[in-house]
Each structure stands twice: as structure tokens, then as C-alpha cells.
């Protein structure tokens, strides 16, 4: 839904970091995105292809690493990963409690860029 705006930010960040490094082309952008996000990778790539025309990043591939949703159990202190679909029953696999809090899963990071 807001893929267009997020894609624009990704492009700006990538181009900013490429300039000053004697880059002729950005070939790949590595992203790390939390699974709690609703981004559709297919759409971001399409938007990216459109927005990046005529920039250093034209034709670059977006490589997305999806970061898992991690919960922390308040009862026993253990941390565990959970699928988005399983959030309805987030019981701790160790002690069975469901008193948990979100540790991660909301990341939105441009990790690095591959350039030539």
C-alpha cells in the first residue's frame, strides 16, 4: 500500500551511499525487512524498476531477507520465533505461557549495496 513511498526511501538511501564511492552502477540492494511488515516484495521491485529509471540504481535487484517475528516470554525469559499466521496462539514453546512481548519483527533496513 505504501510500497511506493518505502521504495522511494530505499532508492534515495542507496543512491546517497553510492555517491562518493566512484560507483557506475548499483546492481543489488540488500534489505532486511521484518515479517510483521505487509510489504509485497513483487510490488516493491516493480515500483523500484519504475522509480530507479535514469538513476545509478536502474535495473538493480532488491534482495530481501525477511527477519522473523521474535517473541520474548515474560514468564520464563526464553525467546522464540513465530510465524505471522501463528500470532493468534503465541504460547511459549518452553513453558506454555502466553505472556509474551514482541522482541523483533518490525525491521526495515537497507543493509548494503552491491556496486560496480
Amino acid at each position: 500500500m505504501h510500497e511506493l513511498q518505502v521504495t522511494e526511501r530505499i532508492l534515495n538511501i542507496a543512491v546517497k551511499h553510492a555517491s562518493g564511492h566512484d560507483v557506475s552502477k548499483i546492481v543489488r540492494i540488500h534489505l532486511k525487512i521484518g515479517e510483521l511488515s505487509d510489504l509485497e516484495d513483487e510490488w516493491i521491485q516493480r515500483y523500484f524498476d519504475y522509480l530507479s529509471e535514469g538513476t545509478l540504481a536502474e535495473g538493480a535487484e532488491l534482495a530481501i531477507e525477511w527477519a522473523p517475528i521474535v517473541l520474548g516470554c515474560e514468564a520464563c525469559g526464553s525467546r522464540y520465533e513465530i510465524r505471522r499466521e501463528a500470532l493468534a496462539s503465541p504460547e511459549c514453546p518452553k513453558c506454555g505461557e502466553n505472556d509474551c512481548r514482541l522482541i523483533s519483527g518490525r525491521e526495515y533496513l537497507v543493509k548494503n549495496i552491491e556496486v560496480i
Partner: peptide, 17 residues
């Protein structure tokens, strides 16, 4: 042939916001 280099970015997309 040009070598592919890696540039570290590590920037949060939402950092500005």
C-alpha cells in the same frame, strides 16, 4: 571487467521519520 564491490549501508528506512 569491473569488480562488484559491497558498500555497507545499515540504514533504517524509517529512520528519518
Amino acid at each position: 571487467m569491473d569488480e562488484v564491490r559491497l558498500i555497507e549501508v545499515k540504514q533504517d528506512i524509517h529512520a528519518d521519520n
